[in-house]
């Protein structure tokens, strides 16, 4: 006679993210077969993701394509197209993050075959928490922090900043007006993530952008 509690207990031991992770693996396989290196760009709303991507679009031109994730509107995709890149907009309709399935669907609609195409940048929905748990199939995860947000944000959002390969500190042109301590932000990010690469940029003035783009380029070539 078995113990009743044991009989009624069913072992499951399954990662809740397993479905997302399967789509992420599929995306990664498809993109690597096409020779496309993929970035996942994550920040809070207004940190300057689209402005950074516009300046990257001017550097990479038709070598880069962009997936824009937003709750609503095609505005960001239009900005990227104007800057010279193919762009696909995902309107999440309220969801606070992109998942690998949404990206998989976007890839179906994009032209991934141009021979010059070598880079796909995915702009996630502006949010420092929810996107951090979702692998999209990217090769490089980039966290963007802008100086008006404050230098204390890294340890407040460890799920994101511990998972990034690259930290971009943006809006450096505002540093003279703010108390943001760049060294503190970098030290705290390295405390979660000792291998993180850091770039200080101003997408508005262009400071640091070429150095960052050259680094991205060297990561796959």
């Amino acid at each position: 006679m078995c113990d009743d509690t044991i009989e009624r207990k069913v072992d499951i031991t399954t990662s809740v993210m397993n479905k997302n992770d399967r789509f992420a693996a599929e995306n990664r396989k498809l993109l690597s077969e096409k020779g496309i290196y993929t970035l996942n760009l994550i920040s809070s709303p207004g940190a300057g993701k689209t402005t950074v991507l516009e300046s990257m679009a001017r550097f990479f031109g038709s070598r880069m394509a962009v997936i824009e994730g937003d709750v609503q509107t095609r505005r960001d995709a239009e900005r990227i197209e104007k800057a010279g890149c193919q762009a696909w907009q995902i309107e999440t309709g309220g969801a606070c993050h992109l998942d690998a399935h949404a990206v998989n669907h976007a890839l179906d609609h994009m032209d991934l075959d141009p021979s010059e195409l070598e880079l796909l940048a995915i702009e996630n929905v502006g949010n420092l928490i929810c996107p951090s748990g979702y692998d999209l199939g990217e090769d490089m995860r980039i966290g963007l922090l802008s100086v008006p947000e404050g230098d204390d944000k890294i340890l407040k959002y460890p799920s994101l900043f511990s998972s990034i390969n690259v930290l971009i500190i943006n809006k450096m042109d505002l540093i003279p007006h703010l108390d943001f301590d760049v060294d503190r932000a970098i030290e705290e990010c390295r405390s979660l993530n000792p291998d993180v690469q850091v770039f200080t940029v101003s997408a508005r003035t262009g400071e640091g952008i070429e150095e960052f783009c050259t680094f991205v380029e060297s990561s796959y070539s």
Binding site: T5, K9, D11, I12, T13, T14, S15, G133, S162
Partner: peptide, 15 residues
């Protein structure tokens, strides 16, 4: 260096 902390699993259910 962080060794673990990202886990999110359904472990078991009791009927």
């Amino acid at each position: 260096r962080i060794l673990s902390g990202r886990e999110f699993t359904v472990d078991s259910v009791e009927l």
